[in-house]
Simulated scan of single mutants.
Amino acid sequence: MPPRFVVTMKPLPCPSCRQTMTKHRFERMHHGEVTIDLCFPCQGIWFDEFESVQLTPGGIVELFKLIHQHRDDQRLPLRAPLNCPRCDDKLLHGLDVAKHGGRFNYHRCLQKHGRFTTFAQFMIEKGFVRQLSPAEVSELSVKVGIVRCTGCGAPVDIRKDHACGHCRAPIAILDADAVEKALARLQHAETRRTTRDVEALGDAIVMRERAASRQRRQQAETETGLVDVIDLVSAGFELVWQVIRR
């Protein structure tokens, strides 16, 4: 089935400030690369459809490193409404729950061209940022009255609100323990992804050769009465080559 649209390498305008976003390439989950558009003045990321789930664990770590390099950049507040950089339609605000428990928000195109998310919300989605409980927000409000929203950049008076009044993003912090756990989880996933499973490969060779041998034996018995023998070494050559070339 042909794709609904063709992704080009043409520079895209930021959905918020409309400045040209910069393109950065990261490793794709199965093969090739994912090209992602970033706006550092707005600290926002544009993902074409499904790109956010196509990043390898190593690619997520590389993107996190890039975000970290720009952590102290001056940030522009997000405008309303935000517009799709491909069709210019208004983006729809959405909320979701990450695998590791955090709630994050984003803005998606109804034409399924992709979605726009801030650096902070992406880090919540991937488990780098920990959201504060109401008790922790109350405790923090004694020392800090107003914080900047991790979702849209708007000021939030946490003495009155425990979430952003503009985009409803909860209050979150870049927690050292959360970062350590997220990095360890991604590193483990990357190791598993890039390490060849010798036992699984051996099982696959045996099962494949057994099936082929059974078929050859049945044919030989029918024609000549001879019985074939399993050759695991020669049978494994093709499977090993298929694994290595991926």
Results as ranks from 00 to 15, higher is better:
Arg4Lys: 12
Ile230Arg: 05
Ala200Glu: 13
Leu92Asn: 05
Leu78Phe: 14
His113Val: 08
Thr194Val: 15
Asp203Tyr: 05
Ile244Gly: 07
Lys181Glu: 15
Lys99Gln: 15
Arg86Tyr: 04
Leu82Gln: 09
Met1Ile: 11
Gly236Asp: 08
Glu139Asn: 06
Phe26Arg: 08
Leu78Ile: 06
Glu190Asn: 14
Gln219Arg: 14
Arg108Met: 04
Pro13Val: 10
Thr56Met: 06
Phe26Val: 05
Arg79Cys: 10
Gln215Thr: 03
Ser52Phe: 00
Thr56Cys: 10
Glu51Cys: 01
Gly59Leu: 09
Ile36Gln: 04
Arg115Cys: 09
Gly59Tyr: 01
Leu66Lys: 09
Asp88Ser: 13
His68Leu: 02
Cys17Arg: 07
Asp175Val: 00
Ala235Tyr: 04
Ile244Leu: 15
Ser141Phe: 03
Arg148Pro: 00
Val240Glu: 12
Thr194Asp: 11
Cys17Ser: 06
Phe122Asp: 13
Ile171His: 04
Gly32Arg: 05
Val233Pro: 01
Val137Arg: 07
Thr35Val: 13
Ala163Met: 10
Thr35Met: 04
Arg25Lys: 13
Leu92Gly: 01
His107Val: 12
Glu221Tyr: 00
Arg130Phe: 07
Leu92Glu: 15
Asp88Gly: 11
Gln131Asp: 02
Ile230Cys: 08
Leu76Arg: 13
Glu27Tyr: 00
Val227His: 08
Thr191Leu: 14
Met29Trp: 02
Phe40Leu: 06
Gln131Asn: 02
Leu38Tyr: 06
Gln219Trp: 13
Met123His: 11
Lys112Asp: 11
Asp177Glu: 14
Arg75Tyr: 01
Gln187Arg: 15
Leu55Asp: 08
Gly145Phe: 01
Phe122Lys: 10
Gly127Asp: 02
His31Pro: 03
Lys65Gln: 11
Lys65Ile: 06
Gly94Pro: 09
Pro155Arg: 13
Leu38Ile: 14
Arg79Pro: 06
Leu174Ser: 08
Arg79Tyr: 06
Gly165Thr: 14
Ala178Asn: 12
Arg103Tyr: 00
Pro13Asp: 03
Phe50Gln: 10
Lys126Cys: 13
Lys23Tyr: 00
Arg217Pro: 00
Asp37Phe: 15
Phe26His: 10
Arg28Trp: 07
Ile36Glu: 08
Phe5Cys: 06
Gly44Asp: 04
Glu209Ala: 12
Leu91Pro: 15
His166Asn: 09
Phe128Glu: 01
Thr194Met: 15
Arg28Pro: 06
Lys10His: 10
Pro77Ile: 11
